[in-house]
Structure formats: structure tokens, C-alpha cells
């Protein structure tokens, strides 16, 4: 398609880059005016606790988006993990079950990556299919019933260490590990390279397939951890557990500045995006908005985030266009 008439200058770019921050400020002021309770510290901690599971999954999603992929199956993955955990906990202690179900989450991601890298099926269709397969499997594991968990799981979710709720600990640990991985390891930097230009990456000696497999496994693992955090807060998994979670997760990631087109973004932004999404939900609750409005608001936010991302990518492409005339001298 012929790119023409895109408003291309650095000012627009700057505004686009900072749209989420502006949005955040507007929301806080707006909700704050409508409900005084909204602006309390207690409420803020509450928001972060509630944002933790979305944030953790979105951190995994960040890896996938950085290589230019997508994973729509994270919500189903959560549900599989919950259902399997229900089975495991009948015989095994928590300390054994948790690592096992995280491994299952990782395997879920590995299956996705196998179809994507080996058979070259587009990522969105693979993960859309495994979304359904996963939910079916989870329903099967749970015997089509609601999975209830023992009080020990719930107490884990209610616990605090050093005055900080466990969900925030989990969120913080996943964030730090992800941040270190992306910014301080060869693997992390190669993720960015592959996202920017897979062909040049292969030429530079990067094992592109290995990177792709790894990011989908990471997304799977994060979905599992996020699922566990969420379980520890609600202690039951009904048949809608994790249903359509991919929406707020993608929203958080893209709002945080990670591009759907690959190569740009990072997990710090994702944390911000997740908190932003949860702030919206929390604000809607605080202002007694109609619950039916929530998905409308969330999808509108995703739309804005994607629009910003697309416009930004178009402008960057224009700015990088090769010129043949250089005024010499």
C-alpha cells in the first residue's frame, strides 16, 4: 500500500509516545473528582494487587510482541493451569504443585511456538486455536465443574511479607527477572534484534527459531504464574476463569508502549500499562458504573493504544526512509 499523507514529524511522534501518560492523568483526575475514595493510598495498593495477575501475564506478552508475534491463548493457559492445579492438589503439596503447573504453562507456550516456527502457521491463528483447545482441555480436567481450592491457597493470596501483599511480591519478582533478562542478557537483546528484522538477525548469527520458541515459552510460563496469583486471590476457578483475559493483557502491553509490529517497548511500560488498565476498572467500580460498560471501556482503550502504535510506526518508517540526495559540502 502506498503510504501518503501521514502527518510525519517529531512533535506528533512525541505526543503519540506520551498518549498513555496523558490518558493516565486524565483518568486519575476524572475518577478522583467523581469518587474521593479513589485517590487514597489504600485504594492504590488495592489497584496494584488487582493488577498483578494481568501485569505478570502482560510481561510475558511483552516478550512475544517484541518479536512481532502475538499470543491469544494466555487466558486459556491460565484456566488449564487452574484446572490441573485442582487435580494435583488432591495428592501433592503446594510446593510441588506450583512448579509443576508452571511447567505445564511453559509447555503450552512451547506447543504454540512449535506450530509457529516449524509449520509457519501465523501466530494469531495458532494461538486462537489453542485458546479453544486449551479451554476444552481445562473443562475436561475440571470435569465441567467449578474448581475450588483449599484455604491454604487463599491464605497465600492474603499473606503479606514485610507489609507488602504477596501478589505485589510476585508481580515485582517477575518484573525484575523479566527486566534483567531483556536488558541485561544476550538473549534479551537478541529478542529486540529479531523483532526489528528477523532476516538481518539470522545474518548476524542469531538463532532466530530458538528466540521465537523461548518467547512463547516465557509467555506460557507468565500466564501460568499470573493464573496462580489470580487463583490465590479468588480461590475458585469457574468455567469463565481466564476467559478473554487476552484483551486486558494485550491492552496493558500495547498501552505500555510495546509495539505490535515488533522491536520496540519493554516491561517497565507494561507494568505501567497493567496498572493503568486496572485503574480504569477500579475507577469504574468506585464510581458505580454499570458493569456492562467495563468491556466497552477496555476495548476502547485497546483501540486507542493500537491506533497510537500504528501511527507511530508509520511515522518512524517515514523518518527512516532512505534519501538519495545529500547536499555535499
Amino acid at each position: 500500500m502506498i503510504a501518503r499523507g501521514v502527518p510525519g514529524n517529531r512533535t506528533t511522534l512525541f505526543l503519540l509516545q506520551n498518549t498513555p501518560v496523558l490518558l493516565f492523568i486524565v483518568l486519575i483526575v476524572g475518577f478522583g473528582m467523581m469518587s474521593p475514595r479513589f485517590l487514597s493510598l489504600v485504594n492504590f495498593v488495592n489497584i496494584v494487587v488487582q493488577a498483578a495477575h494481568i501485569g505478570i501475564i502482560a510481561i510475558g506478552m511483552t516478550f512475544v510482541l517484541l518479536v512481532g508475534g502475538i499470543d491469544l491463548s494466555v487466558g486459556a493457559n491460565m484456566y488449564v493451569v487452574a484446572a490441573v492445579l485442582g487435580l494435583f492438589l488432591q495428592d501433592l503439596p503446594l510446593s510441588v504443585s506450583f512448579p509443576l503447573v508452571i511447567a505445564i504453562g511453559v509447555s503450552f507456550g512451547w506447543v504454540n511456538s512449535w506450530f509457529i516456527t516449524r509449520l509457519r502457521v501465523p501466530a494469531f491463528i495458532v494461538t486462537l486455536s489453542t485458546l479453544f483447545v486449551g479451554r476444552g482441555l481445562a473443562l475436561y480436567f475440571s470435569g465441567n465443574k467449578m474448581v475450588g481450592f483449599s484455604p491454604s491457597v487463599l491464605s497465600l493470596g492474603r499473606a503479606s511479607y514485610l507489609g507488602v501483599p504477596s501478589a505485589i511480591w510476585a508481580f515485582a519478582i517477575v518484573f525484575v527477572v523479566a527486566w534483567l533478562t531483556l536488558s541485561q542478557t544476550t538473549f534479551g537483546r537478541q529478542v529486540y534484534a529479531v523483532g526489528a528484522d528477523p532476516e538481518a538477525s539470522a545474518k548476524a548469527g542469531i538463532d532466530v527459531r530458538r528466540i521465537l520458541v523461548a518467547v512463547y515459552c516465557i509467555a506460557g510460563g507468565c500466564a501460568a504464574i499470573g493464573g496462580l496469583v489470580s487463583l490465590s486471590q479468588v480461590a475458585v476457578a469457574s468455567s469463565t476463569f481466564g476467559f478473554q483475559k487476552e484483551f486486558p493483557v494485550i491492552a496493558a502491553t500495547v498501552l505500555g508502549g510495546t509495539s505490535l509490529f515488533g522491536g520496540r517497548g519493554g516491561v517497565l511500560g507494561t507494568v505501567f500499562g497493567a496498572v493503568l488498565i486496572q485503574t480504569v476498572e477500579n475507577g469504574l467500580v468506585m464510581t458505580n458504573a454499570d458493569p456492562y460498560l467495563y468491556p466497552l471501556v477496555i476495548s476502547a482503550i485497546i483501540f486507542i493504544a493500537v491506533l497510537v502504535d500504528s501511527s507511530r510506526s508509520a511515522i518512524l518508517e517515514r523518518l527512516e526512509r532512505r534519501q538519495i540526495r545529500v547536499e555535499r559540502g
Binding site: 537478541q190 529486540y192 538481518a200 548476524a204 520496540r264
Partner: peptide
């Protein structure tokens, strides 16, 4: 890779 730094480009492999 335009999204990486100079140093990262030198050592990406």
C-alpha cells in the same frame, strides 16, 4: 538494528 544501541549492534551475536 536501529532499535538497539551502537554497542549492542557490535555484540549482538
Amino acid at each position: 538494528f536501529r532499535n538497539l544501541t551502537v554497542a549492542e549492534n557490535l555484540f549482538i551475536a
